[in-house]
């Protein structure tokens, strides 16, 4: 038998990507519905809350930190790995809090989910996005438990893979938010 030269993607990573495709379709349906509904007229415009800009920065920052933490783990710099992981996680939490603050400040100017079609879409889409981010937060918690348990300290391929899968999902919800944010801006 010839020696292996082909690098095959790990089935679990592959499964994750397939799963992400279905999430893409889920949000594609929402944003298409948004476009269709908006094109029918009778559409009340309002500005997005400032918190959404800050939250965008927060989730971008968290992705960068988590990527750095992955690099640190791969090169076995464990202290650095934990620092980046925790700070990335905190920024991730900040994203959720900022989104919530964003909804509250919309409520302050009398914009609720049932106010008009535009607000319904904004609240719904951002709400379902946060639900997916919370899934990512849960995954990050999982990663942190492993990062701080004494028996999981060394870098192994299996642990690296686990981290990669969790972070890939996180980067995905990040990119998804960037897409949604740009979409909302363009549609304004």
């Amino acid at each position: 038998m010839a020696t292996s030269t082909v690098k095959k993607i790990h089935p679990k990573k592959f499964a994750l990507w397939i799963g992400l495709t279905s999430i893409v379709m889920f949000f594609a349906a929402f944003t298409s519905a948004y476009i269709v509904r908006k094109s029918q007229g009778d559409w009340a415009d309002f500005a997005l809350p400032a918190e959404f800009f800050y939250s965008t920065a927060a989730i971008l920052g968290s992705s960068i930190l988590l990527h750095a933490s992955y690099k640190a783990f791969a090169s076995e710099k464990l202290a650095l790995f934990k620092t980046f992981l925790v700070s990335g996680f905190v920024l991730g939490l900040a994203f959720v809090v900022l989104q919530y603050q964003g909804w509250l400040s919309l409520n302050e100017v009398e914009i609720f989910i049932h106010t008009n079609q535009h607000s319904s879409f904004i609240f719904m889409i951002t709400g379902f996005h946060v639900a997916h981010v919370l899934g990512g937060i849960a995954a990050l918690l999982f990663a942190m438990v492993y990062a701080f348990l004494p028996r999981y300290q060394a870098t192994t391929p299996r642990r690296l893979l686990r981290l990669e899968i969790i972070f890939t999902y996180w980067h995905f919800v990040d990119v998804l938010w960037i897409y949604l944010f740009i979409f909302f801006m363009v549609q304004q």
């Binding site: 397939i18 495709t21 279905s22 999430i23 379709m25 889920f26 949000f27 594609a28 349906a29 929402f30 519905a33």
Partner: peptide, 11 residues
């Protein structure tokens, strides 16, 4: 199924 069922879920 993977491409169409999420759209149903959205609806």
């Amino acid at each position: 199924g993977l491409l169409s069922f999420p759209v149903l879920a959205s609806g």
